[in-house]
Amino acid sequence: MQLQGYLYAAGSSRREPARLSVDPQGRVWCAQESLGYWQQLQVSDRIGSSARYLQLVDGRRFECRDNDTIDRLEQRFNPSPSGRWLATMESRLRYVLLALLITVAAGFGLFRYGIPVMAEQLARQLPEPMVRELGGSTLALLDRQLFKPSQLPAEQRQLLQTLMAELNGQLPEADYRLLLRDGGPLGANALALPSGELLITDQLVQLAEHPDELSGVLAHEIGHLQQRHLLRSLLQNSAMLVVLAAVTGDVSAAQGVLVGLPTFLVEQHYSRQFEFEADAFAKQLLLARGRDPARMGQLLVRLAEQQGGGQPDWLATHPSSAERLQRLQAQ
């Protein structure tokens, strides 16, 4: 068998076109010169159709693109090759498809189950003071940028604080504090800060027609805090980034940005999950107090109607109100 390629002098870039031939005993010849036996050569691994390099005993090196002939020679004269099964896997379509299948399944499993479960475990183990710090100066920032002092009449505030106290009483060691604000550009909204403060805007209170609706909103926000949703989504997102960077290899600086998009999509999914979890938590809490969880669902539907389409923030990250109402009404 013959190999056509370049032969390089030892330790030099000087080259000559050369034809190696291998006789049936495995001896390698270049013209009349013997280059030793095939087993004595160091043959580089096959990687696709990229070139191969044969290191000769005397320091000379042979470069050749004839992968198939080299593979046949290896098979014949080298009983213990390294890395041959890898090249086999890469060249056979069924192994490639199998690898694709395993990769997709593993990726799906990891993002759907693996990361959320790990994030939840970790989030539960972090000590309370650390979690509270996450909120940090958020409240001050929100007050400066968005909110104005609440304009609600005194009796309404009183009612809200009573509802809050009732929920606090339901939960062991709970000391959540309710703050009232004019939502400003945020409009009708409610949110929970990791520091244990719940915020509800005047606009949302005015939209409510029954105390149970407001109680439901507060219970829902408490649900987010109790289940550490903010921390979990932070952990999930950073885990996603690490996994994506590891799998895709050296992601260049520019491609770092693109990682943000799948993260965002998965995040939407996670946040839907969290909304349902918080709703389920609220439902239990309300039922225990003899309040009607379906009322919160009605408030959500009213809110969706009032805001119409195209309202980005509150609804966008939340699942459809109709779906949530359905779940809240279910027995």
């Binding site: 890469e90 060249s91 192994y95 490639v96 199998l98 799998v247």
Partner: peptide, 14 residues
């Protein structure tokens, strides 16, 4: 060709 190498790489790494 590179896709085959890459997918086998990712799969075995996982």
């Amino acid at each position: 060709e590179y896709f085959r190498i890459w997918i086998v790489n990712v799969c075995l790494t996982v």
